[in-house]
C-alpha cells in the first residue's frame, strides 16, 4: 500500500496505542483552547464567541486541502479514504437531536469528556445523559430501525451533485469559510459579553 497507509503494516494493538496517543494530544489541545467551557461552546449559538465555528472550519479546509494535494501528488488514493455513508432521514433527525443537546448541555460528545477530565460537574452529567441516550437508542432499535435506515444515499460528494470538480468546490468552500470567519468576528463585536 501507499506511503501513508499504515493498515496491515502495523498491528491492531499498535494502531490502538497510536490512537490513544493521538487522542490524548487531541484532548489536550481541545482543553487548552478552551473547548472544555460550555459557555464558550454555547457562544456559537448566541454570537458572542464563534471559536467553535472557526476551529472546525479551519480544521475542515486544512484537511480538505491536505487530502486534495496528497491525492494530486499520488500519496493517497482518495477512493480508499472512508466516507461515512449518508442516511438522509437519520442525518436530519440526528442533527436536530444533536443540536438540541448541544445548546441545552453546552457540550458535544468529545468536549464533554474534555470538560469532565478537568472536573466539570455539568460535563459529567452530560456524559451520563450521553450513555442514557445510547442505551435508549439500542434498547428501542426495533422501533426506529426503519427511520434509521431510510433514504440511504451511499456516500455522495457535494462536488459531484453540483457537477463541479473537487478542486473548484474546494476553492468555493475556502471562500465561504473565510466569509463566515468575517461574519463571525462581526457577530462577536455585535453581541459581546464581558465574562463567560
Amino acid at each position: 500500500m501507499g506511503p501513508l497507509s499504515v493498515n496491515e503494516l502495523i498491528s491492531e494493538n499498535t494502531n490502538l496505542f497510536l490512537a490513544f496517543v493521538i487522542g490524548t494530544a487531541f484532548g489536550f489541545v481541545l482543553e487548552s483552547s478552551g473547548f472544555s467551557s460550555s459557555r464558550k461552546l454555547a457562544g456559537v449559538f448566541y454570537g458572542y464567541d464563534m471559536v467553535v465555528l472557526k476551529v472546525f472550519f479551519t480544521g475542515a479546509i486544512t484537511a480538505m486541502l491536505g487530502l486534495l494535494f496528497f491525492s494530486l501528488f499520488g500519496w493517497v488514493d482518495l477512493d480508499l479514504v472512508y466516507v461515512n455513508p449518508t442516511y438522509l432521514t437519520s442525518a436530519i433527525v440526528g442533527g436536530i437531536i444533536m443540536g438540541l443537546g448541544f445548546i441545552m448541555g453546552g457540550y458535544c460528545p468529545g468536549t464533554s469528556f474534555c470538560g469532565a477530565s478537568i472536573g466539570k460537574i455539568d460535563a459529567m452529567v452530560f456524559i451520563i445523559g450521553l450513555f442514557l441516550g445510547v442505551s435508549l437508542f439500542g434498547a428501542g432499535y426495533d422501533w426506529w430501525e426503519k427511520m434509521y435506515l431510510a433514504k440511504f444515499l451511499g456516500s455522495p460528494k457535494i462536488s459531484e451533485s453540483l457537477g463541479l470538480s473537487d478542486g473548484v468546490f474546494a476553492l468555493l468552500l475556502i471562500l465561504v469559510a473565510l466569509g463566515m470567519f468575517w461574519a463571525a468576528e462581526w457577530a462577536e463585536k455585535k453581541f459581546p459579553r464581558e465574562e463567560y
Binding site: L68, S71, L72, G74, S165, A170, I174
Partner: peptide, 22 residues
Amino acid sequence: ALFVIPLGLIIAAVPQNTSHPY
C-alpha cells in the same frame, strides 16, 4: 486567507488525479 486562497486556486486549476495508484 493569504495562505489558503492561493492553495485553493492551485487545486481548482490543476486536473484531478483520477488514477488509482494502489
